[in-house]
């Protein structure tokens, strides 16, 4: 393992007016590591995730990816260029998929590689086929998003992100909007990515999944990381009272 972490978040803080949603958060993720962030809604976990690719920029603190500062202070036009560049390396999957409804599955996957990496249409098509095969949706290549189930939409969204060959994947409650019976197909794709040692940061409500797949679990509440550690420790034997309370309530609710 190299000394400098793959992803390095230092003293991250964010506030909306007087409301502090993130308070001095530090998080280091090594290459190939899979980190789950859990916590009650409003704990700041999604905000933290969205700060990593500058969707919700931090008020203060630094985000580094492979030795490059993501949230560099730059002039407006330089910042735009820089952010568009680094975002190509950071894949993100949203709760509500955010597929482009006016484009086919193929169009969704090939748009960004064609526009930003300048690859040819044939090459982009090959890429789309390859990524779709990976998520098991080859036959849907010419379908429109409106013709897909929620689970299929999310798998396409994952394929779209992967087509950019990102260095890290961020998942923002990727299965929360899905009907229970569709959750597993998305989880399977994520597990497969885990086996390929994709670096992943996963905000989730699914404790079982976090326990199975992740190397580390962070429990966040009210803008701070309350506790972190290996899943076995966090789920079986948490030290903090707040973590215990949260898990008890959550596991009870899931049953």
């Amino acid at each position: 393992m190299p000394d400098t972490p793959f992803i390095d978040i230092r003293h991250a803080a964010k506030s909306f007016g007087s409301l502090e949603v993130l308070k001095d958060i530090n998080l280091q993720v090594q290459k190939g590591q899979i980190v789950a962030i859990i916590g009650p809604s409003g704990s700041g976990k999604s905000t933290l995730l969205r700060a990593i690719n500058e969707l919700d920029p931090l008020t203060s603190g630094e985000v580094w990816l492979e030795g490059v500062q993501v949230n560099k202070k730059l002039s407006h036009s330089q910042y735009e260029k820089h952010v568009n560049q680094v975002r190509q390396d950071i894949g993100m999957v949203f709760q509500h998929f955010n597929l482009f409804p006016h484009l086919t599955v193929r169009g969704n996957i090939t748009l960004a590689p064609k526009l930003l990496k300048g690859i040819s249409t044939e090459e982009a098509n090959r890429l789309a086929e390859e990524q779709l095969a990976k998520v098991g949706l080859s036959e849907k290549i010419d379908a429109y998003p409106s013709q897909l189930s929620g689970g299929q939409k999310q798998r396409v969204a994952i394929a779209r992100a992967l087509a950019m060959k990102p260095k890290v994947m961020l998942f923002d409650e990727a299965t929360s909007a899905l009907d229970p019976e569709l959750v597993e197909e998305v989880n399977l794709v994520m597990k497969q990515l885990a086996q390929e040692h994709m670096t992943m940061i996963i905000v989730t409500h699914e404790m079982g999944f976090a326990q199975d797949v992740c190397d580390r679990v962070l429990f966040m509440d009210q803008g701070v990381v309350v506790e972190e550690g290996p899943p076995d420790v966090i789920f079986r034997n948490p030290e903090n009272e707040r973590t215990r309370n949260f898990l008890r309530k959550h596991l009870a609710a899931q049953k």
Partner: peptide
């Protein structure tokens, strides 16, 4: 709003997001 986020996350610029999405 998710459409802007989806596009920007992939690295599309503001103009590209407007033009293509």
């Amino acid at each position: 709003k998710g459409q802007y986020e989806g596009a920007r996350t992939l690295g599309l610029s503001r103009l590209q997001t407007l033009r293509y999405i």
